[in-house]
Write a protein that binds this DNA or RNA. Structure first.
Lengths: 197, 197
DNA sequence: ACAATGATACAGACCTGTCTCTACCATCGC
DNA sequence: GCGATGGTAGAGACAGGTCTGTATCATTGT
C-alpha cells in the first residue's frame, strides 16, 4: 500500500523538491518547466495549478531556502548561548563544512541574483533582502561581542562569507575550508580586543 | 570624411565591444544574438563570419576580459616594485575602488561560471582557469612577502577578493570598500609577522 | 460520482544559426 | 584613366528548436 515517500507526497511538494534540487544544481534559467515536471512525475497543469508561473515557483524555492538557511543559522548559534564571539566563529566553521559537502554549489541566493539581473524581478528582491538580513544578524553579533567597530567587522565578515561561497566548489579552488575559519577567527579576535574570553 | 570612431572600427571590434558590455551588464544568457547585432549595427552574417557561434563569442569576451584584468593587475603591482607586501595591499585598495565604480556588476568570470554550469562549456573552463591564475599570482606574492604560511594567506586573500566582488553592487550591500582593504591589510600583516617593512 | 491528477497537444514567443540578395569599395588588368 | 572583380558588410527571411503557459481528455482513488 505505502509507496515510496516521494510518491505519497502531494504534487506541490514533489514539484518544489525537484525544482529546488535542479535550480540549485543546474541553475534557474537552465532548468525548464518540462524538465521539472518530467523529473517530479507530475502533470504540467498540476504545476500551474499550484504556482502562478515559473517566476512564482522560483520565489517559492528561494523562500524555502531562506527558511532553511535561517534554521541552520539558529542551530549553529544555539550551540554557544550567551557567547557571541564563539557564535560568530562557529558560523564560519559550519560554513566551511557545508562548502566541503559534495552537493555544495555556491550560495543559492548569490547565484539567483547573478542569473536574474532585472531589478524588478521579485526573486532577485528576495535574494537581496535575505543578504541584508544576514548582515543585520552578523551586525547584532558583532555588537554583542563588543567589537571596537561593529560596522567594519560585520562588513569584513560578510565579505569573507560571500567569498567562501564563491570560492567553494562553484569555482573549485581546492580546500579553502581551513582558510575560511582561520580568517574569520583572525578578524574577530582582532576586532574584539582581548576583552572577555 | 572621418566618421565617428565607432563606425570606423571593423565589424569584429564593434561586435565584441557591444557583446562585452551587454554580457557584463545584463548577463550572458539574457542577451541574445539579435540584441547584439541590433545594438552594434552589424549584419548577423558579419557576426557569424567572425565568430563560429555564440559560445565562441562568449569565449572571446572572456579572453579579452582576462587580458584586461591581467593588465590591471600588472599596473597596480608596478606601483610598488620590489615590495610584495605593498603590492598585495595595493591590489585590494584598487579592487575597492573598482567596486565603487557605477558600472561595476560583480566579477565577470564568477558570473559567467554561475550562468554556465555545464562543466564541458569552454567559457566556463576559461573562467576557472583565470581564477586559478589569480591564485597563483597571489601565492607568488605571499611567498615573496615572506608569509609564515603562504598557502593559507593566499587562500584567505582570494576568499576576500571573491567576497568583495560578490558583495559589491551585485548584491548592493552598501559601502564595503573600506572593509575590503582593511581586512586584507589585517590578514597580510598578521601573516607576515613584523619582518621587513 | 467527484475531485485531483496524469498525459498530451497546442499556441505564441524567443533564440540560434543559415541562406539569399544587395551595396560598397579597394585593387588590378588593360 | 577605367571598368571588371572580389572581399566585406548590411538587411531580412527562414528553418528548427526550446521555452512558457493553456486547453482538452483520460485515469485513478475514494
Amino acid at each position: 500500500m505505502a509507496e515510496a515517500a516521494s510518491a505519497r507526497k502531494p504534487a506541490r511538494d514533489r514539484i518544489l523538491d525537484t525544482a529546488a534540487e535542479l535550480f540549485y544544481r543546474e541553475g534557474i534559467r537552465a532548468v525548464g518547466i518540462d524538465t521539472i515536471i518530467a523529473k517530479s512525475g507530475v502533470a504540467k497543469m498540476s504545476l500551474y495549478r499550484n504556482f502562478e508561473s515559473k517566476d512564482d515557483l522560483v520565489c517559492a524555492y528561494l523562500e524555502r531556502s531562506i527558511a532553511q538557511h535561517s534554521a541552520w543559522w539558529d542551530r549553529v548559534v544555539a550551540r554557544h548561548p550567551g557567547d557571541p564571539r564563539a557564535q560568530m566563529k562557529a558560523l564560519f566553521v559550519a560554513l566551511a563544512h557545508w562548502i566541503d559537502h559534495p552537493k555544495f554549489q555556491g550560495c543559492p541566493f548569490t547565484s539567483a541574483a547573478a542569473e536574474l539581473r532585472d531589478p524588478a524581478n521579485p526573486a532577485r528582491a528576495l535574494a537581496l533582502t535575505h543578504k541584508r538580513m544576514v548582515r543585520d544578524r552578523l551586525h547584532a553579533l558583532a555588537v554583542a561581542a563588543g567589537a571596537d567597530d561593529p560596522d567594519r567587522l560585520c562588513a569584513q565578515l560578510q565579505l569573507l562569507m560571500e567569498g567562501a561561497y564563491a570560492a567553494g566548489r562553484a569555482l573549485d579552488l581546492g580546500p579553502s575550508n581551513d582558510a575560511v575559519a582561520s580568517a574569520a577567527a583572525a578578524l574577530i579576535d582582532g576586532a574584539c580586543g582581548q576583552a572577555r574570553p
